[in-house]
Amino acid sequence: MNPRPALVAAATATVAALVLVGCSASGAGSTGTPTATPDSLKGTVTVLAAASLTEVYRDLATQFEKLHPNVTITQSFGGSSALSTQIIQGAPADLLATANEATMKTVIDAGLTDETPILYASNVLTLIVPPTNPAHVATIADIADPAVKVALCDKTVPCGSAALTLLAVEKLKVTPVTLETDVKAVVTKVELDEVDAGLVYVTDAQTAGSRVTQIPVPDAANVVNRYPIAVLKGSTNKAAATAFEQFIFSTTGLAVLKKAGFGTP
């Protein structure tokens, strides 16, 4: 956290005020020319991002802060629907990055973003089991067995709605033992070997590495979540927020996302 919040807040407000004047002509859009030179970017950018973006956004933020040493990126990760609700309830944030379009839409409908959210990445689900595979799960069809303990995301979060769609595609009736509030909680339950299987994003499975085993699900490629990001209307540091957003779409940013297992939208 920042040791001098008052100072930074003042700086943030000043920069925002200065840049807003410069910005007003250029309008919103990802292809617009940068309105500020890197050196003029200062202050804090608060990002609320989906749980599945945890590692990749930390990585992106570190790289961005190296390019712009006067900018601090503060991030909070959680279930996309919880983040959208926080924004609607007035949480102060500059950028929102959700794990699907439906959760972003609630923020657009509330009139809390000026720009059309940009889709920059996609993700698909995969089946993970503990390395010991206690229930001997070989294919996704095996998780329909009532003896297999399955963790899914709750339907209120993107990974949960994607899981329901995937199970419908597979024509499987699964009775999970728990419906978690975000995808990382499902990964944890599998890692701890407390459940036999879980449906998570391929990116989460990749991050978990050898702590879980992936079981390929051929049809998963047909159930795609697309990730939108938008600068929020209430942002007090639109210049730096827009710069971070554009950094994510840059060749460097997209390479980081690709390496983490994300697809193109």
């Binding site: 419906l179 978690e180 339950k189």
Partner: peptide
């Protein structure tokens, strides 16, 4: 509860 018992309607929710 949510950490140890999870969340499933009628059972642990």
């Amino acid at each position: 509860t949510i950490t140890f018992a999870g969340s499933y309607p009628g059972v642990t929710r």
